[in-house]
């Protein structure tokens, strides 16, 4: 199922790989196709708000761009909504004490917090309030717990309304035509190794589909083979002298810069090759080039959306 046709996309990746930029770009791309998109920031860091150049995001989604609604997850608000919607408990107002108590219970019981956050988003999918729901910013260390939350709750609680609700969540999450995980990585050693590790764990420990691996900030190839031979030859002292005479003394630094660029590109390419070789068959890798531009903000989301569009559309 093509990534952009899914209704629930969970975006994860090691810190610093640009998962928020990629999430925002997916939202931009989907909205360009005329979809109504909800994008939810899970880690309360405020990077999603910064990407759309808006202030702190509330729990109630706000339209940040035509067709894109954004919200920040908050388990207390989610609990409030859950109690109101499903258990018909009107607790508006004096939730303070209960919420603090709930914090400790949620810390103790596996999956409680996760089910409230992911549950809210599955609910939005089920009710079809949006065409696509993008979950941004689940840390790699936490995504398995998120995806396994319905299972964990199911094991903990044998009967009752919660048990029922985990069932429909599971149906949505585990339906490969509706939901999937996107793993964002960069062409560096640690992010690639962690991505491969996580791919293995998602496949072993959950029934959730991996929709795509996004390799972000891939450096462009500078030279083909014959060009590289010329570049090497350029660095002979007498050629450098000739260049200096024509373009000035700065040419030494320019050549150093090009060598640096070649080395960076080469290192990255090796890690990407490892990624491709080790990924299970059928897992697509989508490449987003280094844009040499701003790495956050609205403009970056548009540029990454352009790049993703070339690969996905």
């Amino acid at each position: 199922m093509p990534l952009l046709d899914r209704q629930l996309v969970v975006v994860t990746g090691k810190g610093g790989t640009g998962k928020t930029s990629v999430s925002a770009a997916l939202a931009v791309l989907a909205s360009r196709l005329g979809k109504r998109v909800l994008i939810c920031e899970m880690d309360a860091k405020g990077t999603l708000a910064a990407t759309f150049d808006v202030g702190p995001l509330p729990f109630e989604p706000i339209e940040v761009s035509p067709g894109i609604w954004a919200m920040a997850m908050n388990t207390e608000d989610s609990l409030r909504e859950y109690l109101r919607l499903f258990l018909k408990i009107p607790l508006i107002g004096r939730l303070g004490v209960l919420a603090r108590t709930f914090d400790f219970v949620a810390d103790a019981a596996p999956g409680v917090r996760e089910i409230l956050s992911l549950g809210k988003l599955c609910y939005e999918v089920r009710e079809r309030h949006y065409d696509m729901v993008i979950v941004d910013g689940v840390a790699t260390g936490h995504v398995i717990a998120q995806l396994r939350a319905p299972d964990a709750i199911g094991e903990l609680i044998k009967v009752g309304p919660v048990k029922e609700q985990t069932r429909w969540m599971q149906d949505i999450l585990e339906d490969h035509s509706r939901s999937g995980v996107v793993l964002v990585t960069t062409p560096e050693e640690m992010p690639v190794l962690e991505t491969l590790d996580l791919v293995g764990r998602i496949r072993d420990e959950t029934n959730v589909d991996i929709a795509a691996v996004v390799a972000n900030r891939v450096l462009p190839e500078l030279f083909g083979r014959s060009e590289e031979a010329v570049f090497d030859a350029l660095q002979q002292p007498e050629i450098v002298d000739a260049l200096r005479a024509r373009v000035g003394n700065g040419v030494d630094v320019v050549l150093d810069g090009a060598r640096l660029a070649v080395a960076m590109r080469r290192g990255g390419a090796a890690h990407l090759e490892h990624l491709r070789n080790e990924l299970p068959e059928g897992t697509g890798v989508v490449y987003v080039p280094e844009l040499f531009s701003r790495s956050t903000g609205r403009r970056s989301a548009e540029l990454i959306a352009d790049a993703l569009g070339e690969e996905l559309l």
Binding site: G257, A258, A261
Partner: peptide
């Protein structure tokens, strides 16, 4: 001096210059 076609050398020089600009930013 490089024993390579002029067009190829030009392409490499232009690429070196352009990339430098990117990394400079």
């Amino acid at each position: 001096g490089l024993g390579a076609p002029a067009a190829l050398v030009s392409r490499v020089l232009a690429e070196v210059g352009t990339r430098f600009h990117d990394f400079g930013v």
